[in-house]
Design a protein around this nucleic acid. Structure first.
Length: 542
RNA sequence: GCGCCCAUAGCUCAAUCGGAUAGAGCAUCAGCCUUCUAAGCUGAGGGUUAGUGGUUCGAGUCCACUUGGGCGUACCA
């Protein structure tokens, strides 16, 4: 429907050039009495042309060459909206398109040939993934799915750092637990990693090596084993919620390749850095940021900024047209430095899109749980998946705008898992599957012959909803708004449940029954496609 | 202090780049299964969109200020 109108208007703009000069919006009115689609062009033009909007609207309508078999009526309403009403015989034609495209319905080729990378999770291997990482993981994977749906060739990448102070402390934490388990006298510092998993790794080392390691230092086998074990755990957790990375990028390789050194020299050569108090500073103030920042400490070790910039350069070198970085809000101060660095070196930093999602607040027994890997005060993503299942976890993190703080009451999530909206969607899908099994036994089949019989209000509402799906996918993907899909699917499922209650298939006249079967299949197809974007399963039975 | 994000029904959240009468779920109340899955459907109650001012045909949405919250503001990542 929308496409039909867009074509109509672009044709009309040949005769009315002023239509080309404005960004009008075609939208579905939230009031049924305002038609199937409305356009605000006349109101926008009114200011520009200094004419009465209703008068302009009349002129526009006179120049629209529409087919009476498609559009039933056009009217001017309110302050100057033009409302379009489609014919009830045109609307069901969407079913043919859905059945034909099947699992491809909703996909587009708008960005075909472009390469995108989504970098997400990127947690250093110092402990298990927490619920906080879960939000990042799910959103990142879904954004990647969405980009694939609009034509991008997408890579998923995990960036990590297995060097530095954090990791030294990790290794030493394991070492101390190891000694402790062997009955040695030790004191375990408060700011070391307190989690149980450290003890498990230490126990594993005792199993394999007995007490032969008591004189090893923290940086060796302790750190390496810790990293290996923790990563294995992280990958297991990711796969439990259906996430598969194409690539794990180790920060350390940037040093080995000499990329850090050459970047440092380039900054120097371009006079973008200077030395002060034995450290090297980047002239960020000259690049428009608040203050200069250290890129190499007085100890000679780079800060995270240098490798981060070098890392992004590798993304450019790998030829991505779009680079998504997904961070939690605790990183919101770091990315402007990286972007400024890239800009200074002449990279098209607008290809880098930084998404910041707000935190997940965990409520337990009515209190906020402060999450900290160091203090072992966290709920792991694994525990969450075990409690409520992967589908609920994926849906939960996908159903809300990333800018909103997420309030997660654990008790409530467990208790109400049966009432979670994800079941509402899955139930609609399973219900259709069940209907299809049933009608088959009755010897009925789907048919496109008499779609014009779908005239009930709820049938028409459902059909109109179908039209919106491709555009909804496009908008969600271009704006990185995963939650729009969830909301759309809930509305679609609600319409189907209403249809199910009001209209029967078995027992209806044959032509009508077969048209309704087609309607059901089309609904099921969109539900399945939408759920697959969100990474949620579409069950045949519940 | 400064920067980013947020404030919408009792609770958790929506609201199509500024659109027409602000919507869902949960919770509460009242109904609907001898025929395709009741994890469903129908109806009711519930709102000064935190506050004040501004911009315009039109503001939950944009701007300014105020209040209240989250995250930052490192020679940690």
């Amino acid at each position: 429907m929308k496409k039909y109108l867009v074509d109509l208007f672009s044709k009309a703009s040949e005769k009315l050039p002023y239509l080309k000069e404005i960004d009008y919006v075609l939208s579905v009115p939230n009031q049924k009495s305002h038609g199937d689609y409305a356009i605000n062009a006349a109101m926008i033009l009114s200011k520009k042309l200094k004419r009465n909007p209703r008068e302009i609207a009349t002129e526009i309508i006179e120049n629209l060459e529409f087919d009476k078999a498609v559009i039933e009526k056009v009217e001017i309403a309110g302050p100057g909206f033009i409302n379009f009403y489609f014919t009830s015989s045109y609307i069901p034609s969407i079913i043919k398109e859905i059945l034909e495209k099947n699992e491809k319905f909703g996909r587009s080729k708008k960005y075909a040939g472009k390469k995108a990378m989504v970098e997400f999770i990127s947690a250093n291997p110092t402990g298990p993934l927490t619920v906080g990482h879960g939000r990042n993981a799910v959103i990142g994977d879904t954004v990647a799915n969405l980009l694939e749906w609009i034509g991008y060739d997408v890579d998923r990448e995990y960036y990590f750092n297995n060097a530095g102070r954090q990791m030294r402390v990790l290794g030493d934490s394991v070492r101390l637990r190891y000694l402790e388990l062997l009955g040695k006298e030790t004191t375990f510092p408060e700011d070391y990693y307190q989690g149980e998993y450290i003890k498990e790794i230490a126990a594993k080392l005792i199993n394999e090596h007995g007490d032969k390691l008591i004189n090893e230092d923290a940086e060796g086998i302790f750190k390496q084993t810790a990293e290996k074990e923790i990563f294995a755990d992280i990958i297991k957790t990711m796969s439990a919620i259906g996430i598969k990375m194409k690539n794990f990028f180790n920060e350390h390789t940037l040093y080995d390749d000499g990329k850090i050194t050459s970047l440092l020299e380039e900054f120097k050569k371009k006079n973008l850095s200077y030395e002060k108090e034995d450290a090297i500073w980047l002239k960020l103030t000259e690049l428009g940021n608040e203050q200069d920042k250290v890129i190499v400490k007085s100890t000679g070790e780079p800060t995270y900024r240098l490798p981060d910039i070098a890392y992004h350069i590798t993304k450019f070198e790998r030829g991505y047209d779009l680079m998504i970085d997904l961070f939690g809000s605790d990183h919101n101060a770091t990315y402007p430095d990286v972007l400024a660095g890239l800009r200074a070196l002449g990279y098209d930093y607008e290809k880098v899109k930084v998404l910041i999602h707000q935190f997940v607040t965990i409520m337990q027994k009515g209190e906020v749980v402060k999450m900290s890997t160091r203090k072992a005060n966290y709920i792991t993503l694994d525990e969450l998946v075990e409690e409520v299942g992967a589908d609920v976890v994926r849906y939960f993190f996908n159903m809300r705008s990333i800018t909103s703080h997420l309030n997660f009451d654990l008790e409530l999530a467990k208790k109400q898992s049966d009432e979670n909206p994800v079941f509402y969607l899955q139930y609609a899908h399973a219900r259709i599957a069940s209907i299809l099994r049933m009608v088959k036994e009755q010897g009925l089949d789907s048919s496109l012959e008499h779609l014009e019989l779908l005239t009930q209000p709820v049938e028409q509402d459902l059909l109109k909803k179908f039209f919106e799906f491709p555009n909804e996918v496009l908008l969600s993907a271009e704006n990185y708004e995963v939650h729009r899909i969830a909301i759309y699917l809930e509305e679609l499922a609600a319409l189907f449940h209403r249809f199910y209650t009001e209209c029967r298939i078995i027992g209806s006249e044959k032509n009508l029954a077969e048209a309704r079967i087609s309607l059901s299949i089309a609904t099921q197809t969109i539900l399945r496609n939408g759920l697959s974007i969100l990474g949620v399963t579409a069950p045949e039975r519940m």
